[in-house]
């Protein structure tokens, strides 16, 4: 329903720009990103600009440093903005906390690009979440992802390399395991090396990927894992050399120059626009954030990178040409 409303709103916005009544002063949005500005923010800001919502942004980037988030949280509490925007699971948890240890009381939070907001304990459920935190998650349901991989080539063993310190990764891995077992498949897990206090390390990526391959993994699953993203060149490169096809779950993974084969992803811009719509609901329409449900997009894009497929000598089936985007 909301999504249809979004489409209608986008259409209406095209016809009657500046539809929203101008408030006395611009809304103040405190934006927290984890690894710089992405298309999500462009979509978010673009949507609000198009709708004529006057906004004054304060942007802070954590540069993948958790310590900085505590600083930002303190700043936000002092500033008391009209809305806090967060990018990704880490930034969202750093700012808003979990639902059993909530932070930033009294300031509505809209998140974008959280893979699994329930699994990461940001909200206890997607609707009627009981706290003033809402947002958009971007990862296609695991069942749809597995179906998409199968559409490329049937498999029984799926390899995954993930950062055990990221709660979204843990959530995705356990879902994958359940989904595969249901279909009679198996998940082969490998974790990034970590310091004694749990910080992930880029050491030993090559041997981990090679071991997955040696254990019989037919695909390498690239989850919505930030640490994985920052080491993607290495991970995807090793996989490519080992002849292990890779499957991405987010747009940034498949869009990177690293040789990733295929993916079922949400467009970041669309995710940002949807988050912008939720911000508008809260700021302009005055809906309490707790009444705005956490949602995902209903359409995902299947992307296949032809050059990677050729290098791997792992060509897509002809039927995929019907519905996937080849590039």
């Amino acid at each position: 329903m909301k999504r249809r409303a979004l489409l209608a709103a986008l259409g209406a916005a095209a016809l009657t720009a500046r539809a929203a009544p101008a408030p006395a002063r611009p809304y103040r949005i405190y934006m927290t990103t984890w690894r710089g500005i992405t298309d999500v923010e462009k979509g978010f800001q673009g949507y609000l600009a198009e709708r004529g919502v006057p906004v004054q942004y304060t942007w802070r980037d954590a540069g993948q440093n958790r310590a900085k988030l505590a600083e930002f949280q303190r700043e936000a509490r002092e500033m008391r903005p009209d809305l806090v925007y967060t990018w990704g699971t880490s930034a969202t948890l750093g700012m808003a906390g979990t639902y059993d240890a909530p932070q930033l009381a009294g300031i509505p939070v809209v998140f974008a690009l959280v893979a699994d907001p329930v699994g990461a304990k940001i909200v206890p459920r997607l609707a009627g979440q009981g706290r003033d935190v809402t947002g958009v998650f971007h990862v296609a349901p695991v069942a749809a992802q597995l179906e998409a991989i199968r559409a490329y080539r049937r498999f029984t063993r799926l390899g995954v390399l993930y950062n055990a310190a990221e709660s979204n990764s843990i959530a995705v891995v356990s879902e994958l395991k359940a989904g595969l077992e249901r279909a009679g498949g198996r998940l082969l897990e490998a974790r990034f090396a970590a310091t004694p206090d749990g910080q992930p390390l880029a050491d030993g990526i090559e041997e981990r990927v090679m071991r997955l391959k040696a254990d019989g993994a037919e695909w390498l699953y690239l989850g919505p894992d930030t640490f994985l993203y920052t080491n993607l060149d290495k991970v995807a490169g090793v996989a490519q050399r080992a002849g292990l096809p890779t499957f991405a779950t987010t747009e940034s993974l498949i869009d990177s120059p690293a040789p990733v084969l295929a993916g079922l992803v949400s467009r970041y811009r669309a995710v940002g626009e949807f988050a912008g719509y939720k911000a508008e609901q809260i700021l302009v329409e005055r809906h309490p954030a707790r009444d705005v449900p956490v949602e995902t997009l209903s359409r995902f894009v299947y992307i296949v990178r032809v050059e990677v497929a050729k290098d791997l000598a792992f060509l897509p089936p002809i039927t995929l040409l019907n519905f996937a985007e080849f590039r």
Partner: peptide, 10 residues
């Protein structure tokens, strides 16, 4: 996309 038909699976 320069994909050789005879080598395409499916």
């Amino acid at each position: 996309f320069q994909l050789p038909l005879e080598k395409l699976p499916g």
